[in-house]
């Protein structure tokens, strides 16, 4: 168990290193010259040279990368070209809003996904099952920005049940969380259904039924526990999907998180911010996967025994 832990941690560190290499490559490829951006157009060659030296751009490439890595380890993601602020500060100030949105979306996708998945699995082959599966296909094929605008149009503009955008109260959270969670809900519904159908075939479910457990108890207590593993493994992968979705959803609803920060940076081609958000998101994904892997033996004792 300790060996597995150490191996898994080591892998994560290697992947994080790889991520930093790729993001460094992206910054290096960017056509915008940071020196010109900082110095301005009218700077003298001497100023340009001194800024170049300050930024370490006169060093060989591998030394520049090591410098970048050192800065990353200290939590320094560089400076925005346009706002002249630390990217880390900008991201940290917007992280709480995004985390709130992610929490809301996870609740939505679990409620929709588990509910629809259980309903479909227990009615396998019947019209309700077909309807739910069809709906799940629509959910995973719907462009999130259109879904966001649709919910905004129906529930905020026409029915006036929710505010048109903004941030702060639970009422503000409902529509963005719904938009972000429906896509995942579609995947979870399919996954839960497949997983449950597999588990419901097994002998111990027969035994539980024979001993007089009601259908609700069989599903919730006996079956769902064993169907949970692939679902938990998926939550780790979800973070990537959510981070991509957050850019779209936050820009549609004016939600002040890091997705909106990235979107604003796109409009101004502010590469350090875009790369910084990508790096933070990728780190989040690696950590999410790590947590899901470490949680697996805790959920399923069979893995613990190896």
């Amino acid at each position: 168990m300790a060996l597995y832990l150490a191996k898994r941690l080591g892998q994560s560190v290697l992947i994080l290193l790889g991520i930093s290499l790729i993001t460094y490559g992206l910054i290096y490829l960017a056509p915008a010259d940071p020196v010109r951006q900082i110095a301005g157009r009218s700077a003298t060659p001497e100023t340009v040279a001194s800024i170049r030296r300050q930024l370490g751009l006169d060093l060989p490439l591998w030394q520049q990368y090591l410098r970048y890595l050192g800065q990353l380890l200290q939590g320094d993601l560089g400076r925005s070209y346009i706002q002249k602020t630390e990217v880390t500060t900008l991201i940290l100030s917007r992280l709480p809003a995004t985390l709130q949105l992610l929490a809301g979306a996870i609740v939505v996708e679990l409620i929709i996904g588990l509910g629809a998945g259980i309903a479909a699995a227990t009615r396998r082959g019947r019209p309700a099952d077909r309807l739910i599966m069809a709906a799940s296909f629509v959910a995973v094929s719907a462009p999130q920005f259109v879904l966001g605008i649709l919910l905004l149009y129906v529930f905020a503009v026409q029915l006036r049940w929710f505010p048109i955008g903004g941030y702060g109260t639970l009422a503000h959270l409902v529509l963005p969380a719904l938009t972000l969670g429906i896509l995942g809900g579609g995947w979870y519904a399919r996954m839960t259904r497949a997983s449950l159908i597999e588990v419901l075939r097994q002998d111990y479910i027969q035994t539980a039924r024979a001993k007089g457990a009601g259908p609700g108890r069989v599903i919730l207590v006996h079956a769902l526990r064993n169907a949970a593993l692939p679902i938990v493994a998926m939550v780790g992968l979800d973070i990537g999907m959510f981070m991509s979705g957050a850019v779209v959803v936050e820009s549609v609803y004016g939600w002040p998180g890091i997705g909106q920060l990235a979107w604003q940076a796109i409009q101004r081609v502010d590469i350090p911010i875009i790369v910084g958000v990508t790096l933070v998101a990728a780190t989040g994904i690696v950590l999410g996967n790590l947590v899901a892997d470490l949680a697996a033996p805790w959920i399923d004792p069979r893995i613990r025994r190896g």
Binding site: I15, I19, I22, S244, T278, A282
Partner: peptide, 22 residues
């Protein structure tokens, strides 16, 4: 395959956004 794992850690849309911005 380690390189593939690495690419999996990037959210597709964000990576595409960065590339498209560059």
């Amino acid at each position: 395959m380690r390189f593939t794992d690495l690419m999996m850690a990037f959210p597709a849309l964000l990576l595409a956004i960065t590339l498209a911005a560059i």
